[in-house]
Design a protein around this nucleic acid. Structure first.
Lengths: 217, 217
DNA sequence: TTTATAAGTGAGTAATCACTCACTTTTAGT
DNA sequence: ACTAAAAGTGAGTGATTACTCACTTATAAA
């Protein structure tokens, strides 16, 4: 187990036994951060909403920023965790012989996670540009781990003629763009519209498959 | 000319003769808003950076939020303006017989605009979720005007067999997702990476074209 | 040159900010 | 029941906030 894997596990396991008041603080903070933004939310406001003295927040989190990181970091770690597979080859041969099957599994899996953690993921997207620590965590996990892992995966399917010959990073970018573009449009930008979720997901997957179609259909 | 067209023109023309100090205020505000976010930027900070008394800001903008809107609203209007074409049919027959040509023109055109207005567009993306006035402007222009306009356009190319039969809104969503996904990745998320811009743009267009290919190739 | 209007100033304001600290209450091991 | 550590409190801190206003300076038409 590398240092980096350890870091992820630490982040995920960090959510241990919390006091009732601690939970209320986190719930209230998530609500306010998501609604008004991190900078526009005051600690007194969070305390009031949580039914807690303002001092209690600072008993558990040294600074307001610490509170933000405590909320956002574990969710980021859990969001990318399923992509970090130790033995890709095995998974691919056993579970997903077709790239399409892999795509479909990924879309459904991450959709469920996104729905369960919508406000926190909104906060994460909002604040990433302004906090170097968050950006660093993101780069370390996403850019390095997932991206390279995904490139191997793409090359695997390219070798089998399922995906067009093209730089792997382009394939990865387009796939991510399409899937998360759909999820963001569906759940963040236009959640009110009446979506036919199954049909729209299937169309998105077909779009990617045709867009990246290789020599063997 | 409808009320809405008038509104757009008003927003665009709003940048008339400004004092030297007024320009410096706007430039400084854009810089700080983009770097630290709107809420985390103080008016005293903007004044200092612009070499201006704090009162001068409030002479021209009633509130801090007014300053934000004065910066962001015209750029939003200009960003969507080229999509608002009065006579689509004419444009399509004369300039873009192929959907592919239209896509390529749109990509290049909006790329240039994005590069020239990068910080302001960053601010816009950041602040849209928190300001109802901005969201309203966006919905009015994007959701209603562009989206319906684009749907007509898609149906035009579908009728000619260039695009697969599929709900037009899905086609629009996927096209926008792919193009702006590329532009955002290229210029906002990973501007440091060494991109082969022409190749990457071409790959993105080919990806869309294959993903949406109709009966007649 | 006069004069009205607009642009610019900076000290001042009440409110709010993140955070501290001396203190009280709760928890849990013996 | 005793006790030490952890959790919780809320009044108080100086700094900073967006914004005001009485005043000065610059602009330009008559």
């Amino acid at each position: 187990m590398t240092d980096r894997d350890l870091k992820i596990d630490q982040l995920i396991d960090a959510e241990e036994e919390l006091t009732d008041k601690q939970k209320k603080i986190i719930v209230s903070a998530i609500e306010s951060f998501a609604e008004k933004g991190y900078s526009a939310t005051s600690t007194s406001e969070i305390a009031k909403k949580a039914g807690v003295a303002e001092g209690t927040i600072f008993r558990h989190y040294k600074t307001k920023k610490d509170l933000l990181l405590a909320i956002v970091a574990p969710v980021m770690a859990r969001f990318v965790a399923p992509f970090i597979i130790k033995d890709i080859q095995k998974v691919l041969h056993q579970d997903y012989e077709q790239f399409e099957d892999f795509l479909r599994a990924m879309l459904e899996n991450r959709r469920d996670f996104l729905i369960k953690n919508l406000p926190t993921l909104k906060i994460l997207m909002q604040e990433i540009p302004f906090h170097p620590e968050l950006r660093e965590l993101f780069k370390e996990h996403i850019a390095l781990k997932i991206f390279t892992q995904f490139e191997k995966l793409v090359e695997h399917y390219q070798a089998r003629g399922q995906i067009i010959e093209m730089p792997a990073y382009s394939v990865v970018r387009m796939t991510f763009t399409s899937i998360f573009g759909y999820l963001i449009a569906r759940y963040m930008i236009l959640p009110e519209a009446d979506w036919d979720d199954e049909a729209e997901a299937e169309r998105t997957i077909q779009f990617i498959m045709h867009g990246l179609a290789g020599t063997k259909s």
